[in-house]
Design a protein around this nucleic acid. Structure first.
Lengths: 346, 346
DNA sequence: GTTAGATATGTTATCGATATCACATCGATC
DNA sequence: GATCGATGTGATATCGATAACATATCTAAC
């Protein structure tokens, strides 16, 4: 419209491939090929085209291209929050793995709710991503349906969903927390407390709590003391408040395990503020092996999870499936590693 | 193609708007209107269409739509790293502000290099975002040219660039660090040290260092002791190593200011590990007011920056300019607030 | 010197939506 | 009851690229 009205097309509009083609004295198709790696265009032609591209300041329009080629070059990833270094690491793993492929990441945050996840999934599917990476296995029914009918590979991460949609790259949060309990029990601790958020929105948090309770039972220890505090994800500050309420109610607690290192760090700092000795008066452990846990004083015992590796592996599988086309293998589950890191806090 | 070969179109392919239209007994145009807010479609028609949409599991294809409407619904944002809670907060501010507008965020990381920024900018412009948010004012020449000829609003954040491209939402890192020096000088500290990264890749870091040096000069204090350690962004661990080298070289340093709270935290923990009293033996301050600075023990004096607000304000300006269309006002600079937060570490 | 096969380039027809204009219908107003 | 404006819907052209096929040119082999 604005273009048609103007006497000299392309005067004020952004240049198109046709403008470049005209300037270089070739067809649009040749320009398209010159701008795409791996297609054969003679050196002389390519140089003419590149010159025209630079003179006009042309930038390829991928939305037009992907409509035609039916490949958008997008991959979608949905994490609970990016303001959490564990998930930020996963996001970075995904980005790093995608970098060389030309695929671009669409990133979204759920704020730990499945409703927001559903909305995000729909918003992303409107962009026709070629694959999608999710965190966890809890989704609304509609979200599942949308994903199933999207016809693209799906990778669920960070958990082992009971009913996987497609691919899985994760670990058992329950087992990991159980291993932490057993490791500490071996050191002689018997009266355990657990600090986590108040709701089950954070499914990984719930799984860790279950793992805690189950391990205590299996070991035949006195029942674990559970403190729920704050809406997940719980902060450093809430970790501090939670440990206070734990100690008020059960002053003889010997070891407190926290749903994440952030709450553990909050608990640790609060104990120190109150003049308690860690681990002599109380032992504290976290989950996630955040940088802060390694370098605070005393260092916090925790469960190291390969956050970055989860992202990379999830993206790698997605790329394989996208590139592989028809010969997509069936559902597959990749277990990622975790390990207990013992530090001075226990 | 595959479609044309199949006898019943739309059998295995994802349904298109035409399929929905056929099923609902209306034209594609009416479907398009029904799926777009604020266009007038009769209630009865809309219901028929929505039913067809649900039965077919149809999801709008925005790449096709944006080609036609010449609006992609994308906004691009480029930050140095998302594994840094300050920038993650800014990213969240942007997302939150965009949420109600239907605009979607394309997020990228530069890893603190202008070369990667340039590549990212080009990759994002291929998606034809309607606006773009950058961190800082340092860009390659080509990046500047690309941005200028893109014809979209640009917001530079987190600094006050000497030569702004378009809009700015930020603050003077130099001034902020200067204010921190002055605040501590008023408390009686005279022998100051500064810990930062080794290169100028992190322009905000360099500006803070300059602010430090200049404030010391202005106050007529003994020359500041500068320790450069590690490639920016420097980590908690590197902060610890840096403070060691600071103390070896200048054992009488009274107050150490760090380029960020993470390095300050590392320095603090290292000092405590060595049995030093903070702030009696040495005072430590950081920059950024990360959560860890507030809740560690002792709390770290720092400069609070409105990271989240920077994101929100940048996005708000962008939205105004996008929506405003032609009546775009000229370049504007929005100063965001910062303030010294004094805690026990000084 | 002819021909097969590789290489380089052009032509045409889409991809799936929306802008735009045209048209039909309806109620209100005089 | 004729006219006008508001409202709802459809037909058509198009957004800017690329797939697929066609064609031209070149190289090497005999």
């Amino acid at each position: 419209m604005g273009r048609a009205a103007s006497p000299r097309p392309g005067e004020n509009q952004a240049p198109t491939m046709a403008d470049v083609a005209e300037r270089a004295g070739v067809s649009a198709m040749t320009v398209s090929r010159a701008l795409k790696e791996g297609s054969r265009v003679s050196k002389a032609t390519r140089e003419k085209i590149m010159a025209a591209v630079n003179e006009l300041g042309y930038v390829l329009d991928q939305s037009a291209g992907s409509l035609s080629s039916r490949k958008t070059g997008f991959v979608a990833a949905i994490v609970p929050s990016i303001n959490n270094s564990n998930f930020a690491d996963t996001a970075r793993g995904i980005t790093d793995e995608l970098e060389s492929t030309g695929l671009q990441l669409l990133l979204g945050y759920t704020d730990y709710t499945v409703e927001k996840e559903e909305r995000l999934i729909e918003a992303m599917l409107r962009r026709r991503p070629e694959g999608i990476i999710l965190t966890g296995g809890a989704h609304t029914d509609r979200a599942r349906r949308l994903l199933e009918s999207a016809g693209i590979p799906v990778v669920e991460t960070w958990e082992l969903p009971a009913k996987p949609i497609d691919q899985v790259v994760g670990f058992s949060n329950e087992e990991a927390m159980g291993l932490l309990v057993k490791t500490l029990a071996r050191k002689g601790y018997r009266k355990f407390g657990y600090i986590g958020g108040t709701t089950s929105r954070d499914t990984r948090g719930s799984q860790r709590r279950e793992g805690f309770v189950r391990a205590i039972e299996e070991l035949g220890l006195p029942p674990g003391r559970l403190v729920s505090f704050g809406v997940p994800p719980i902060s450093i500050e809430q970790g501090g408040q939670a440990v206070v309420s734990m100690l008020e109610r059960w002053p003889d607690t010997e070891a407190v395990l926290c749903v994440s290192d952030l709450s553990a760090f909050g608990a640790l700092m609060e104990c120190k503020r109150r003049g308690m000795r860690v681990p002599q008066d109380i032992a504290i452990a976290g989950f996630g092996d955040y940088e802060v846990a390694a370098f605070c004083h005393p260092g916090i015992t925790t469960v190291n999870v390969d956050c970055y590796g989860i992202g990379r592996e999830a993206a790698r599988r997605l790329i394989q499936l996208i590139r592989g086309g028809e010969k997509q293998r069936g559902q597959e589950i990749v277990l990622t590693s975790y390990r207990i890191v013992e530090r001075e806090s226990t």
